[in-house]
Structure formats: structure tokens, C-alpha cells
């Protein structure tokens, strides 16, 4: 799932080697169930809610959250996807990628946006996402849901909904997928 992040992290072309499993598939399912209920609890009007998944790791989480919110509230939730590559502050320092598509549901003015990503780390991706959202209008509020908060923030950004707080070393890699959350390392093959 974190294929994109992995290919962007030095050493380039490295391979992810799993070390410790911190959540299994059932833990992930329960975390999504809980986060979906927290989102409903905090946003009474589900009809004005837009889940914006960050490409690529946030997409499966947003879809899963959207399913649960839809079942529980009876309202379908709009889901968009956002690739923040063109808004990053490290353009020129990392590779250019082409495979993630932005597909936004149009004007966001007046909606409550929940940004969804797999792993929250330095916060720079979220900063880029906030800038990108601005191009789609003035959202009423923007909230952040992540499966894993691994710390090491470099910007004043905090999540509203967290699957798991996970203390990590800076050089570790966290992989979150529907099958579970794994800590490991990226090593040159």
C-alpha cells in the first residue's frame, strides 16, 4: 500500500522488509468502525460531508470509512481522491511520479472535508493537501483522519481521528493496509 512512499524514500528502489505487526486485519477493521462513528458523532450533518482520500495510501481507508458511515447514517458519503504531488515543498528533491489520479467531487465551498491518509508522519503531505483543497473552494471545515500517527511532526498539524498512535524511530517505515499495520525497514535489495 505504501508503495508510493516507499519508492520516494531513500534509498530509492528499496524494498520494504516487515519486522513487527502492530495491528492485524481485525484490529484495522475495528479501528475503521470506531473512526467512522467518531466522524458521525462530530459531524451531525453527514450529507454535507466529503471524504478526501490522499493518493495512494488513503484511498482504501476512505472507501472503508465511507461504507461504514453510509450504513450507519443511511446517507451516502461523497468520496474524492487527491494527489498532492504538485503542491509539495520538496519538488526538485525527489522523483516525479505519474500514477495517482486526482478525482475531486467539484466545488467544496460549504462542505466539511475529512482528509484521509494512511500514515501521518512529518505532516508535510497534509500541508500540501490543505493548499490543494483551497483550489476547490472554501470548505466549512477540514478534519484529518489517519490510520496511524507515528509522530515526528515537522509542522503544527494534528489528526482528529486516529486508528492507532504508534511511537516509531525516524528511519523506520510503517505500512498500513486492510491486512494490518506493520513496522519495518526499507533496505536496498
Amino acid at each position: 500500500m505504501a508503495e508510493r512512499e516507499r519508492s520516494l524514500a531513500p534509498p530509492y528502489g528499496g524494498v520494504f522488509v516487515a519486522r513487527t505487526t502492530v495491528m492485524d486485519a481485525e484490529d484495522v477493521r475495528r479501528a475503521i468502525w470506531r473512526m467512522a462513528h467518531e466522524i458521525i458523532e462530530r459531524n451531525r450533518e453527514v450529507s454535507g460531508l466529503v471524504l478526501v482520500a490522499l493518493q495512494t495510501g488513503g484511498v482504501w481507508i476512505a472507501e472503508a470509512l465511507g461504507r461504514v458511515i453510509g450504513e450507519v447514517s443511511g446517507h451516502d458519503v461523497t468520496i474524492g481522491t487527491l494527489d498532492v504531488a504538485f503542491y509539495r515543498d520538496d519538488i526538485g528533491l525527489r522523483p516525479v511520479l505519474a500514477e495517482a489520479a486526482t478525482d475531486m467531487p467539484g466545488e467544496l465551498t460549504g462542505s466539511t472535508v475529512v482528509l484521509v491518509d494512511d500514515v501521518l508522519f512529518t505532516g508535510r503531505t497534509i500541508r500540501a493537501a490543505l493548499n490543494a483543497l483551497g483550489d476547490y473552494g472554501r470548505a466549512k471545515a477540514v478534519q484529518l483522519a489517519v490510520m496511524v500517527d507515528r509522530g515526528h511532526r515537522e509542522l503544527p498539524i494534528r489528526p482528529d481521528y486516529v486508528g492507532k498512535n504508534l511511537p516509531t524511530r525516524r528511519d523506520e517505515m510503517v505500512d498500513a493496509s486492510p491486512d494490518g499495520v506493520v513496522i519495518g525497514d526499507v533496505v536496498k535489495p
Binding site: 503542491y87 466545488e107 483550489d135
Partner: peptide, 18 residues
Amino acid sequence: LSDRFGEVNRRPIPKVPA
């Protein structure tokens, strides 16, 4: 990559800070 920018060009504000 052109596909990604095609999407940018269809946005209400067709501009990115890249």
C-alpha cells in the same frame, strides 16, 4: 504525467504551485 495535468486544467482554478 500529461493526464495528471489534464485534470489540473479542468479544475476551476487551473493552477498548481509545482
